[in-house]
Amino acid sequence: MSTPAILKALTEKEIISEEQASIISSYETSKPFSLHWELRSILYLGILLFTSGAGIIIYENIDTIGHQVIIAIIAFLTAFCFYYTFKHSLPFSWSEVRNPNKFSDYVLLLECTLFLALEGYLQFQYKFFGSRYGLAIIIPTIIFFFSAYRFDHRGALSMAITGLASWLGLTIAPMSILAENDFGNERLLISAMILGSLLVLIGWLSEEKELKRHFSFTYFLLGGNLASIASLIGFFTKDYGIICFIVSICLSGFFIFRARKAQSLVFLLMGVVYGYLVLSYSVLRPLGDAAAIVGVYYVLLSSAGIIYFLLNFKKFLGIKK
C-alpha cells in the first residue's frame, strides 16, 4: 500500500486532518535515505578483513620484518584505540549508556582483537607467559570484562565470556558448542554445566538488580546454551544423569517462566526445545525395544501438544500483551 492510500484511509476515518496528511506526505517524499546499517556493516566487515589480513601477513613475514617492529606497531595501534575509546567515552553508569560518538563502539572492537593479536604474538615469539596459559587467557578476559562494563559494549562482553570459557578449556560460541567441546571428558562436562549455570545466574542478577540489565541477554544466551547442552549430554551418557536431568529441567523451567518478563522470546524457545528433549528421552529410555513403536505415537502427540502450547503460550503463562 502506498503512502497516499494510507493517508487517504486515515483521513476518511477522520483520524488525521487534511493538513496533517499533507505534512506527512511531504515528509515522506523529502525524507533522506538512511545508509546507517549499510555503512555499519561495511565497517564491521572491514575490521574483520583487516585484522585477518594483518594477522596472516605478520605470520608469513615473521622472519623478515623484525619482531620489535611488529610488536611496536600492534602495541601502538592497540594503545591508540584504547586512548580513542577512553577519550570519547561517557561516564560510567549501571544503566544503558548510549554513546553518541559514531566510531567508539567499533574502535573498541578493533582494540580488543588487536590486543589478542599482540598477546598471542608475545607468547609465540618470546614465551612471555611461559607455560602459564591460564594467565595468558585470563588477562584479556579481565580487560574485556572491564571494557564491556566501562564502555557499555555487548560485543566486548561476549568476547570476555568467551575468554572465561576458554580459560576452563571450553568453547562457548553458539555454533561451535557441540562441534568443538569434548564432552566425553568428565571434568569439562561438569565445568560447562557449572559455568553455564553461573552465567545464567549472573544474567538473572543483572536483570533483577538493574546492573547493566541489557547485558542479561548475552549472559542468558551464551550461558544457557552451554549449560543446557552439557547437561543434556551428561544426562544421556553419564551414570550421574539424574543430577544433569535436574539441572536441565530447572534451566528449561526457568527459561519458560522467564518469558513472562522477557521482551524476547528466544528463551521460551530454548526452554521448550531443551525441556522437550530431556523429557522425551526420560520417557522413552525405560521402554527399551518398545520405544520404536510407542515413539511414533509419542512424538506425534507430544509435538501436537507443543504446538498447542506455543499457539497459546500467552494464555498459559499469563502474558497480557
Binding site: I47, L48, T51, S52, A54, G55, I56, I58, Y59, L109, C112, T113, L116, A117, E119, G120, Y121, Q123, F124, Y133, A136, I137, P140, T141, G155, S158, M159, T162, G163, S166, W167, G169, A173
Partner: peptide
C-alpha cells in the same frame, strides 16, 4: 572475533592468527 588464544592458538596455524579473526 572472540576466540582468546587457547593453548594451540599460539602456534599460528596457517591463517589462524591468534584471535585475529
Amino acid at each position: 572475533l572472540g576466540q582468546t588464544p587457547a593453548e594451540k592458538g599460539f602456534e599460528f596455524g596457517g591463517g589462524n592468527f591468534g584471535g585475529g579473526g
